[in-house]
Design a protein around this nucleic acid. Structure first.
Length: 507
RNA sequence: GGUCCGUUCAUCUAAGGGUUAGGAUUCAAGAUUUUCAUUCUUGCCAUAGGGGUUCGAAUCCCCUACGGACUACCA
């Protein structure tokens, strides 16, 4: 019997979503679409102390920017609403209680201080404290005969937690879609806390398993950092009697820092000069700003395409994929096992490819806001001409202003190196003369200007490169941009003459 | 320390016992562009090490080394 594919992305709203999270969401989305299944957004906010204002909205906005759509979730609603765990608060305790009653869990009354002391003690003896089958009957637990009155302690209002009672010395066989069979001996596990009375909320492990069960999740696709807790989750499914409908698991390889060591973290972006977040983020507590891929001038399609290929490969040489093509081609068995280092250069290359694919008309609404942000109003026809001239010089959207600012405003500075190289000796006189002759021209068309410039150089026995580059310096302020005659024509006679005059004055 | 996962060019990766180990990014050189960029061509660069198994190993097995994740009343 084929089970309907239902997958979820289940982030914790503890801060902005970073690219590793976006990739996890993307793979889930592709998998769901590929199999005609459902994709669900569930917010795992069971840790009230780490909740960050705006984080949930940020996650939703970021995925929408990437064109990753949900079928059910906090925004869309759905048959399993609510999709925010804090709003599902009242459904978890009964399962924790069920586990206690069936002998798969127990109450524990150790205070945080006592646990800390146990850890310190073990550490001083060179080991690590593990809350497990060896100690649980000696500690303050309902399994300890000395605590037979535990119900009384509870009713007295004493703080407690429910811990999972991991069986001793059992081989746990698990199957991961990416890694194959994994076997762990249960004695190496610890009795994880499932539920805490301090806030009446479950921990991740319980909430996750219960919700995946209730929401009929068929496949859990998540980061590799969760692999070590898979044995616990498998044991939980069994203990709750849900083994038959346990989802299949796929643990994705981690996204690694570009310079080698460790998994990519939120701090790395600022450190290495590339964004780790999809969108602009302002930390509500500190006001600290983190730039996103949007700030850097990335097209969301390029960003998604790049991310898709970081840990997954189609099996052929195709690199450019639309979302539809990704959906069609995606499969879990082509996800690689090893972590992928993040390469910002390659990300930029993807953006360049996408920019090139777009028509001038498609580029117009994307580029217009960039120009307007500079305080310039332009008509579409003029902007279209500029786009056509500079489009192949763009890698990021932010390159547009760098490459085309002089089409909108006179240069206010002149590149010092270029001035040094191109503005010397007889150049000012030559340019002055050029200006005089230019002012006599009736037609200001690129072809004629080109011819005119050739004549000018010949007539004055001057050097072509010297004249062209000096004139370019006057027009642009540096040594870049499209063909000079084209620039002159676009700018028009009046502006051309004005800029020459400005340069003669300032240089 | 313990448990688990991993290891092919600098980077992302292909090759699921038989290829001169392929592609892409970066980098370098050349051509084009009287600027800069683009574009084109070419080039450099890899199976972590050691043992097996096999006629034959990047591929299967073992060991070593290295890297990583996890080890909270966080997810």
């Amino acid at each position: 019997m084929e089970r309907r594919v239902r997958v979820r992305f289940a982030p914790s709203p503890t801060g902005p979503l970073h690219i590793g999270g976006v990739r996890t969401a993307l793979y889930n989305y592709l998998f769901a679409r590929k199999h005609g299944g459902d994709f669900i957004l569930r917010i795992e906010d069971t840790d009230s102390t780490r909740w960050v204002a705006g984080a949930e909205e940020y996650i939703i906005k970021s995925l929408a920017w990437c064109n990753i759509r949900f079928d059910e979730g906090v925004v869309e609603g759905g048959p399993h609403a609510p999709y925010r765990q804090s709003e599902r608060k009242n459904i978890y305790f009964q399962y924790a209680r069920q586990l206690v009653e069936s002998g798969h869990a127990y109450y524990a009354f150790d205070t945080p201080e006592e646990l800390e002391a146990l850890r310190k003690d073990a550490e001083s003896k060179g080991g690590a404290f593990t809350y497990n089958y060896q100690v649980r009957e000696q500690l303050k637990t309902s399994l300890n005969p000395a605590f037979a009155n535990y119900e009384e302690r509870i009713s007295r209002g004493e703080k407690w937690v429910i811990r999972f009672k991991v069986p001793a010395n059992q081989e746990i066989h698990m199957f991961d879609l990416i890694r194959g069979e994994v076997v762990v001996n249960s004695s190496t596990l610890d009795d994880k806390v499932l539920f805490k009375s301090s806030d009446g909320l479950p921990t991740y492990h319980l909430a996750n398993v219960v919700d995946d069960y209730l929401m009929q999740i068929s496949h859990v696709i998540r980061g590799e950092e969760w692999l070590p807790s898979l044995p616990l989750h498998v044991l939980l499914y069994k203990a709750l009697g849900w083994e038959e409908v346990m989802p299949q698991f796929a643990h994705l390889p981690l996204l690694l820092k570009p310079d080698g060591k460790g998994k990519l973290s939120k701090r790395d972006g600022d450190r290495m000069g590339f964004p780790v977040f999809p969108l602009h983020w302002v930390d509500p507590a500190t006001g600290e700003v983190s730039l996103g891929y949007d700030d850097y001038g990335f097209l969301p399609e390029a960003f998604v395409n790049f991310l898709a290929l970081l840990g997954w490969h189609p099996g052929n040489d195709q690199e450019i994929f639309s979302m539809e093509e990704l959906i069609e081609t995606f499969s879990i068995d082509r996800i690689s096992k090893s972590g992928a280092k993040f390469d910002f250069e390659k990300a930029k290359w993807f953006n360049q490819q996408y920019l090139r694919q777009k028509s001038n008309q498609q580029l117009l609404p994307i580029i217009k806001p960039i120009v307007e942000k500079q305080g310039v109003t332009v008509n579409d026809d003029y902007l279209l001409r500029i786009i056509d001239m500079v489009r192949e010089r763009l890698i990021l959207l932010t390159d547009f202003w760098k490459q085309a600012h002089f089409f909108f405003v006179d240069p206010d500075t002149y590149d010092a190196d270029v001035v040094k190289k191109r503005w010397k000796d007889n150049v000012p006189q030559l340019i002055q003369q050029l200006k005089n002759e230019l002012s006599q021209l009736e037609h200001f068309k690129a072809d004629e200007l080109k011819e005119f410039l050739h004549h000018f150089v010949e007539k004055n026995n001057a050097n072509m490169g010297a004249v062209m580059n000096a004139l370019r310096l006057c027009m642009v302020g540096g040594s870049y941009g499209p063909e000079l005659p084209l620039i002159l024509e676009t700018l028009g006679k009046e502006t051309t003459l004005r800029r020459i005059e400005n340069a003669l004055k300032k240089l």
